[in-house]
Write a protein that binds this DNA or RNA. Structure first.
Lengths: 96, 96
DNA sequence: TGCGTATTTGGCAAAAAATGCAAATACGCA
DNA sequence: TGCGTATTTGCATTTTTTGCCAAATACGCA
């Protein structure tokens, strides 16, 4: 396989993998409603804040979310809203 | 978090996880061109046929592809073409 | 029935991902 | 400067994923 194609496949796989976790999908859906700080997300997700922070950094490294520090807290927001469209496709797979 | 929501998140994560591998994305793209038998896919992917077969079963368990045995060989085809649209969204993330 | 090809499955080892705890950092405020 | 809150990072452990080899299965054909 050509190196060029392999590179494109790996890029796509990296993005899908970054999203492929229930907590990270939850984060994506919540951020679709507007930006949130880590503490707000942590209070919604029953997990250690360090775990939530790690999930956020996975999404950030993939370019899916963006962070901004304001004062004491860090706010995250969704950078690729088109991702939300994926889930409609999934619904068609659920039946049958 | 409500059990109902958690279940939905897990379903979505399972689908994303099933796609989140370079070889499996390759398979999805190839099947978008039409059905292929395992041997054809194996010859395109430089990996053991057993490895390719396992990737195919991951996609099949997720409901993304469908298989049909004809004679000696097993043909796979894409069941959810809408998945192809994902990758356009990814392109927007690549720049910057 | 016996052989050859196509595919899947079992088993195992290596690599990657997930998670909590504790420690480090960053920042605002008294 | 010193304290308290918010966030990230280091570390150790467990779980999951990947990939190959060898063995098992399935099927067509002589």
């Amino acid at each position: 396989m050509l190196a060029d194609r392999r590179q494109k496949l790996e890029f796509r796989a990296r993005l899908l993998k970054a999203m492929a976790h229930p907590t990270r999908i939850f984060i994506i859906e919540e951020l679709a409603r507007g930006e949130q700080c880590v503490c707000e997300l942590t209070s919604l997700i029953e997990a250690d804040m360090s775990t939530v922070s790690r999930h956020l950094s996975v999404l950030k490294n993939a370019g899916i979310v963006q962070d901004e520090k304001r004062g004491n807290q860090v706010f995250y927001r969704l950078r690729a809203r088109c991702i939300l469209g994926f889930f409609d496709c999934f619904e068609t797979l659920k039946q049958q």
